[in-house]
């Protein structure tokens, strides 16, 4: 009865891995956009913006991603809205990513010396001009390595969406195991594919860090 070849297993896993990649990209891009908005709210003047952003970030950092997925998937169902697994997965991951990226980037903006704000103020620049021309270009340089590093967390975070029934790499692994009864081979491959996705990201984060540091010293 067991007539699955290794290639059959790997092929099915690789096909499912496309969804892992797609979900990762959607989460990261969407999370970046929401994250930028959160960042500006968080560091802006005024009271409402920072308070909202702080609460948002604390909520999403203070609860497990799995609970956020459950809430997105089942929560809306309570109101009679049928949420497909892919939508719940994407929304939860985007919101989760945004919270972490906003906080990473806030640290980067605040790492720019106070004198840079003062010098650009004294030259007559307004808040947005200072941000655009003086602060963000310097913050960006600091932000690249940790941001790329965090993308690894996003890729691994997508594995949790298997629990609400989104068929990506992990879910496919479970399904293939149920058909082949070869859990060790299957999950070994699953782990290997995750590693092949994540390792280049971690590595490039390290390389970028070294490169940008050197660039900062010698240009």
């Amino acid at each position: 009865m067991n007539d699955f070849t290794t290639w059959d297993i790997l092929r099915n896993l690789l096909l499912a891995a496309r969804w892992t990649v797609l979900l990762s990209i959607v989460s990261f891009v969407g999370g970046s956009l929401v994250g930028v908005a959160l960042l500006f709210a968080r560091i802006g003047k005024g009271r409402l913006g920072p308070a909202f952003a702080r609460t948002y970030i604390e909520l999403f950092q203070g609860t497990p991603l799995l609970m956020q997925l459950f809430l997105a998937f089942f929560g809306l169902g309570l109101f009679g809205i049928d949420v497909p697994a892919w939508l719940a997965a994407a929304v939860a991951l985007i919101l989760w990513t945004a919270a972490f990226l906003a906080e990473i980037w806030r640290g980067c903006v605040e790492s720019v010396a106070k004198g840079q704000w003062e010098a650009s103020s004294s030259l007559g620049m307004g808040y947005l001009q200072q941000m655009r021309w003086v602060i963000l270009p310097q913050a960006l340089r600091v932000a690249v390595p940790p941001t790329v590093g965090f993308s690894v967390q996003v890729v691994k975070g997508t594995a949790l969406t298997s629990i609400i029934g989104f068929v990506e790499l992990s879910k496919a692994g479970t399904m293939v195991t149920n058909a082949t009864f070869e859990p060790f081979t299957v999950y070994g491959f699953v782990a290997l594919i995750y590693f092949c996705l994540c390792w280049p990201l971690s590595k490039s984060s390290q390389i970028l860090e070294r490169k940008l540091n050197v660039a900062h010293r010698n240009h």
Partner: peptide, 16 residues
């Protein structure tokens, strides 16, 4: 600030 320029102890040039 367009009328009065300021120079600081720490230079504060834009390093980038």
């Amino acid at each position: 600030r367009l009328k009065v320029g300021m120079i600081f102890q720490g230079f504060n040039l834009f390093p980038h």
